[in-house]
Nucleic acid binder design. Structure first.
Lengths: 174, 174
DNA sequence: TATTAATACATCGGTATCGAGGTATAGGGT
DNA sequence: ACCCTATACCTCGATACCGATGTATTAATA
């Protein structure tokens, strides 16, 4: 998720680490903060893997900046991660939103559509958080108001997303 | 999140690891699967910390079962984790849902209400995934259909949850 | 008869993440 | 004179997690 966000932001324009940090904080930080001590090693990982290159510039006010640029391999890697996301990128909303945030970087509408359809298929599976044997329970069948809340909220999300997915898939010219 | 789920399930009744695994898979597995190699070490951690005790029983069909029972310290620990959740338990939906799934274990309606209010306060903060400087952007202001989707879905979730939270807080007799 | 699935647990190496702390510089407040 | 905040990067130890793999037994299936 973090690596995807780094690649995604750098796909548009080179950035130094500190700026990257602020953009990632804006994107996902209010839900799932990323520590500095996670970001810098992640950058090093991607650099070591040849996905990005580092150029040192004098800092605007403080220490020298390390301006990060995606290599060709890095650009390919982002497109690959967006084209064939990990199953967790589809099922987990945090990760799915990161995919969505950068899906525009796929220039092929058909490829974008395939990704949206995977999410659609996931949401169309009958799944719950609570079961009676194998049968998924509905909110109305639960006594616990908090568990009922989970199902109520999840259902509202699911409905909104299904509508949006179907509209967007259609508009991509499926 | 995993530890909370383990403590939460065992609060009701002793279970062996394999059964625990199935219950956790039902609760959060469709969104965020938990590997076996994560669960068993987590159980050991909690055992080592004195939060649960293990009793060996002959297995129904296969290897002997390790039936896990919460200790008094374990019961206190669950109540503590529910009473004062980590900020991430409030902001991250995956973790928040786990808190909600077991919030009934707090016998004090006032304490439950405090937790719901923390989530309410979080959702009421003006936050977006995308900004123009400091100003959160609305879905309508975005060209990218996928980023617009993120905001559309997030807004629908937020609306549904705010409604539910306010109703539930009121019904708890706030 | 062979194989697969389900039950039931466990270890091991590799990696991702976090919190705490460290090293600088510059500007503004008190 | 002092401290705080923001900029800008980094290290280190601890831990949590994952995938791969291992060990055993029973029941169903091909």
């Amino acid at each position: 998720m973090l690596e995807l966000a780094i690649l995604g932001f750098l796909y548009d324009t080179p950035l130094h680490g500190y700026e990257l940090r602020k953009r990632i904080a804006a994107l996902t930080g209010h839900v799932k903060p990323v520590a500095e001590s996670t970001l810098y090693p992640a950058i090093k990982r991607l650099e070591k893997a040849g996905l990005l290159a580092r150029a040192t510039e004098p800092g605007a006010v403080a220490a020298p900046r390390h301006v990060l640029t995606l290599t060709d391999a890095g650009r390919r890697e982002l497109r690959h991660r967006l084209t064939e996301p990990d199953p967790r990128d589809i099922s987990d909303e945090n990760r799915w939103f990161t995919v969505l945030a950068f899906l525009r970087h796929l220039d092929d509408a058909a490829a974008q559509s395939v990704v949206l359809r995977r999410r659609l298929a996931f949401l169309e599976e009958p799944a719950s958080f609570f079961y009676d044997g194998d049968r998924p329970l509905r909110a109305e069948e639960l006594d616990d108001p908090f568990r009922r809340g989970i199902l109520t909220i999840a259902r509202a999300t699911s409905r909104a997303e299904l509508t949006w997915l179907r509209e967007t898939i259609a508009s991509l010219g499926g």
